[in-house]
Simulated assay, not measured.
Amino acid sequence: MTETQNTSRRPGALIAMSGGVDSSVAAWLMQRDGFDCTGVTMRLTRNEAVNTEGLHTCCSERDIEDAAEVAYAMDIPYEVLDFTADFQERIIDKFIRVYEAGGTPNPCIDCNRYMKFDHLLRWAEAHGLDHVVTGHYARVEQDEATGRWLLKKGLDENKDQSYVLYNLTQEQLAHVRLPLGGLHKSEVRAIAEQQHFVNARKHDSQDICFVPDGDYARFMEEFTGKHYPAGDFLDVGGKKVGTHSGAVRYTIGQRKGLGLAMGAPVYVCAKDMQANTVTVGPESELFDTIVYANEVNWIAIPELKGPLRVTARTRYHQTEQPATVYPAGPDSFRLEFDQPQRAPTPGQAVVLYQGDVVLGGGTITQVAKG
């Protein structure tokens, strides 16, 4: 290719099209801005056998049809890539392992890390495309002073998805475009209506794609062929107060569905997976001040060398809380909140912020009262 041809080539963008309104508008914005776009949908599960009618899930056959129709309307190439085998190994199998170990997994974060921004980036590079584009509500910018790529919150506080993107590496951020980061959801829907997209009024996906009815324990039993047996409910003093239907069915902080009459509200405070016991107690038992995390990914800094003041979320839509983060090893940190937090849970992500910038984050391994 000659230099003249190279400089005249329009930049190429792989659009990760989920079938929803957000990724469709992201595709339209990139095409408007002069990019050669190729739409791609990842087939992650064979859930056509699952009744998803009326459920707010993603990755279904209907979603693929909607994505294909939008791509056709925009006159851009479109492909469906089958990653079902890798999705089972990297996402579903881990989901089951974490629950069986007593944690609460976050498969959407793992999907972003191992599937969307790994497989798609490599596919884009192999096909001469410069960027991977998604419909996430977050922003990517380069720090002029340090040269590092930064991940920032989306301007629509109600839709900000920076929490689920904290695992993006510098290499990935350099090639990622998030065109919705500066928009509000109402503006995105308006664009979709103007373009007459078939999914302009489609509901947002809310459920785990491979557990569309939300009954993850039943899914695990059907998927693995295992039966998770009943066991003892214990109070905080270790006394049996009832019988549960399998420890994997309960999450820390849960109140509903316990079936216990103890004279006052009780919550799941702890689980012992080996003994198959679930400890319940008053809500005051749920509050912890210290969180330990591993599998850490730093974005705004190359590493943590000493204590830093931050704000942090231990759940997706939690209001950030002030804290101090300390190094705790090559791939871990200790986070001390100014005030005790309700039910930080092993397996979930803890994401650290400084203003609207994502400093980094990790996976919660244990918690302590402090």
Rank of each mutant, 00 (worst) to 15 (best):
Gln161Cys: 05
Gln161Lys: 09
Ser162Cys: 07
Ser162Trp: 09
Ser162Gln: 11
Ser162Gly: 14
Ser162Ile: 00
Ser162Met: 10
Val164Thr: 06
Val164Ala: 11
Val164His: 05
Val164Leu: 12
Leu165Gly: 01
Leu165Asp: 11
Leu165Trp: 11
Leu165Lys: 03
Tyr166Gly: 03
Asn167Pro: 04
Asn167Val: 10
Leu168Met: 14
Leu168Gln: 15
Thr169Ala: 07
Gln170Cys: 11
Gln170Pro: 07
Glu171Lys: 14
Glu171Gly: 08
Gln172Lys: 12
Gln172Trp: 06
Leu173Trp: 11
Ala174Glu: 11
Ala174Cys: 05
Ala174Leu: 07
Ala174Val: 03
His175Leu: 03
Val176Asp: 01
Leu178Lys: 05
Pro179Tyr: 01
Pro179Asp: 05
Gly181Pro: 04
Gly182Trp: 03
His184Leu: 06
His184Arg: 15
His184Gln: 02
His184Met: 02
Lys185Ala: 01
Ser186Gly: 13
Ser186Tyr: 09
Glu187Ser: 15
Glu187Tyr: 07
Val188Gly: 00
Arg189Trp: 07
Arg189His: 13
Arg189Phe: 00
Ala190Ile: 08
Ile191Asn: 04
Ile191Lys: 13
Glu193Thr: 10
Glu193Leu: 12
Gln194Arg: 13
Gln195Arg: 15
His196Leu: 01
His196Tyr: 07
Phe197Asp: 08
Phe197Lys: 03
Phe197Val: 09
Val198Gln: 08
Val198Thr: 13
Asn199Trp: 08
Asn199Arg: 05
Arg201Asp: 15
Lys202Arg: 15
Lys202Asp: 07
His203Cys: 09
His203Arg: 14
Asp204His: 02
Asp204Lys: 13
Gln206Glu: 13
Asp207Tyr: 03
Ile208Asp: 06
Cys209Gly: 00
Cys209Asp: 09
Phe210Ser: 06
Phe210His: 08
Phe210Cys: 05
Val211Leu: 04
Pro212Asp: 09
Pro212Trp: 08
Asp213Ile: 03
Gly214Met: 11
Gly214Phe: 12
Asp215Phe: 10
Tyr216Trp: 09
Tyr216Asp: 10
Ala217Lys: 13
Arg218Phe: 00
Phe219Ile: 01
Met220Arg: 09
Met220Gly: 07
Glu221Val: 00
Phe223His: 15
Lys226Phe: 02
Lys226Gln: 10
His227Tyr: 01
Tyr228Lys: 02
Tyr228Cys: 02
